[in-house]
Simulated assay, not measured.
Amino acid sequence: MDRKAKIGDAAIEVIAADGMRGLTHRAVDRAAGLPPGSTSYYARTRSALLDLAAERMIALDQVEVTPPPGSLAEFLGAVVYASITEGRTRMLARYQFALEATRRPELRVSYDAGGRLLRRRCAEVLAIAGSSAPEAHTRVLIGWLDGSIFDALAGTGSRRPPTKDELIEGARAVLTGLGLAGA
């Protein structure tokens, strides 16, 4: 892993653990196990550091987007399950970014760029699965995905997060409602 990616990963960890207020160059240096000043070499300002973390989240998302052959419901359930287990840190950081982007237009640009990429890929997958209205169905599906993840990590559902099987059944119900029962 190159140093910029390592710093991006560490920034995501800091944001997830300490929120946006905890994001400092020193905190990222510590989290990355780098000598003091290393982060500021790659991201001079706090804004540049936020951009670097956002770019890293987008890059990581690109790796996880392609569904394998088989049931779309199983794939979606597995994606949500992975997001609330091994992807927990990144998802918590993503929610911090979402809230911060409502107040900072320059961050909104990066945040929305990542969201558009995910939505475009989701629409492509739904079209392949036989959706009659992929863009409209994407809005519904993303709502279920985001809502399920948020509830399991930060909502009332965090007291008893759903199992992978429960998430697969939830995905199946959403897909059935979209007229994609066989997906």
Rank of each mutant, 00 (worst) to 15 (best):
D146R: 02
G130H: 08
S131C: 08
I142M: 15
R139W: 13
A101M: 01
A98D: 03
R104Y: 01
A136C: 11
A133N: 14
I149M: 07
A98Q: 06
R120Y: 10
G114I: 02
A101Q: 00
L145G: 05
P134W: 05
L107Q: 03
P134L: 06
D112R: 04
I142C: 10
G143W: 11
R139V: 10
L126N: 13
D146L: 02
A133Y: 13
I142N: 10
A123F: 08
L126R: 12
T102Y: 01
R121V: 09
E135R: 15
S110N: 08
A101H: 00
R120T: 14
R120A: 08
R108P: 09
P105A: 12
V125T: 15
R119H: 12
L107D: 03
E124R: 15
G143C: 02
A101D: 02
G114P: 12
A129C: 11
A129F: 03
R121K: 15
R103C: 04
L118C: 12
R108T: 08
G115K: 02
L107T: 00
A123Q: 10
E135C: 07
R121S: 13
P134A: 06
P105D: 10
R108Q: 12
H137W: 06
P134F: 04
V125S: 13
L99E: 04
P105H: 11
A98W: 00
V109P: 15
I149P: 02
L117D: 11
H137K: 05
S131L: 05
L145I: 15
T102H: 01
W144C: 02
H137Q: 13
E106G: 06
R108G: 04
R120M: 10
I149R: 03
I149E: 05
L118M: 14
V125K: 12
V140A: 07
L126I: 09
E106F: 04
F97L: 04
A133I: 07
S148A: 15
R139M: 09
F97A: 00
W144Y: 14
E135Q: 12
C122S: 14
S148Y: 09
Y111G: 01
I149G: 02
G115H: 02
A123L: 10
F97Q: 01
G143Q: 09
I149H: 05
A123P: 15
L126E: 13
A136D: 15
S132C: 08
V140D: 07
L107M: 09
P134N: 08
S110I: 00
A129W: 04
T138Y: 06
R121G: 07
R121W: 09
L99F: 00
R120S: 12
S148Q: 14
R119L: 06
L107I: 04
L107K: 03
R116G: 13
V140L: 09
L107E: 00
F97Y: 03
T138H: 07
A98P: 02
L141E: 07
R103F: 06
A98S: 09
P105C: 07
R103W: 06
D146A: 01
L117P: 12
Y111N: 01
R103T: 12
R116L: 13
D146V: 00
G115S: 03
L107S: 03
C122L: 15
D112T: 05
E124C: 08
C122F: 13
G114C: 04
E135M: 12
A98L: 08
V140C: 05
E106Y: 03
A133F: 11
G130Q: 10
I128M: 14
R103Q: 12
A101L: 00
R104G: 02
A136W: 13
E106V: 03
E124I: 11
Q96K: 07
